Simulated assay, not measured.
Amino acid sequence: MAVSQGLSIGALADRTGLAVSAIRYYESQGLIAPWRNSGGQRRFHRADIRRLSFVMIAQQFGFALPEIRELLAGLPGKRTPTPADWTRISETFRNRLDVRIDTLQKLRDNLDGCIGCGCLSLPKCKLYNPDDRARQRGSGPRYLMGDVPDQSG
């Protein structure tokens, strides 16, 4: 099939391993943008193979589709991304993964102790968060988010 004719949805499914319904869903989410040929059939750019492969990888790392769409926004839609394109996007991807890894490590290390939720439901929380002091710093699991428990009192 000539590149100018694009890929059919079946050919794209074969190349990516995705179901046709998944490809249609990703299209509806704005992650790929096919065009219609003179017969009204969807046609996809060859670059969509890489775009969809990236979507699958990013989802495995826990990225939500809105985040993936944001990451893909900087990639060209009609040509295969260059090494420079992927370097740019992978830098952002790597930074976000580093933040997630740090958060997961903090969660792992504090799993059996107070994470600063302010619930005071565990006796140990009174040691880490007396009088619900973490609540003064804001909502959420303050110590997991990087706050340090007060050492006084």
Rank of each mutant, 00 (worst) to 15 (best):
E91F: 01
T92P: 02
F93R: 06
F93Q: 13
R94D: 12
R94Y: 05
R94C: 05
R94P: 04
N95A: 15
N95C: 12
R96L: 10
R96K: 13
L97Q: 09
L97S: 05
L97F: 03
D98T: 13
V99F: 02
V99L: 06
R100Y: 02
R100P: 02
I101D: 05
I101V: 13
D102P: 01
T103E: 10
T103M: 08
T103S: 11
T103L: 09
K106F: 02
K106E: 05
K106P: 03
L107T: 15
L107F: 03
L107K: 10
R108K: 13
R108I: 11
R108D: 09
D109I: 08
D109T: 11
D109M: 06
D109L: 09
N110F: 02
N110I: 03
L111Y: 04
L111Q: 06
L111F: 05
D112Q: 14
D112K: 09
D112M: 13
G113S: 12
G113E: 13
G113M: 08
C114R: 02
C114I: 00
I115Q: 11
G116H: 07
G116K: 01
G116S: 11
G116L: 10
G116C: 12
C117R: 04
C117P: 04
G118M: 12
G118P: 04
C119T: 10
C119G: 04
C119A: 15
L120T: 11
L120A: 14
L120C: 07
L120M: 12
L120Y: 05
S121G: 14
L122D: 13
L122C: 08
P123D: 14
P123H: 03
P123K: 05
K124D: 15
C125I: 00
K126V: 09
K126S: 13
K126Q: 12
K126Y: 08
K126H: 13
L127H: 10
L127V: 13
Y128M: 11
D131Q: 14
D131W: 00
D131Y: 00
D132A: 15
D132V: 15
D132W: 07
D132G: 12
R133C: 10
R133P: 00
R133Q: 15
A134L: 03
A134G: 06
A134P: 05
R135D: 02
Q136C: 08
Q136L: 14
Q136A: 15
R137N: 10
G138N: 01
S139I: 14
S139Q: 15
G140T: 08
G140V: 01
G140C: 01
G140F: 00
P141N: 14
P141W: 10
R142M: 12
R142E: 11
Y143L: 07
Y143H: 03
L144W: 06
L144P: 04
M145C: 03
G146Q: 05
G146F: 02
G146L: 02
D147G: 07
V148W: 01
P149A: 03
P149E: 06
P149Q: 05
D150Q: 04
D150C: 06
D150L: 11
Q151D: 13
Q151H: 09
Q151K: 12
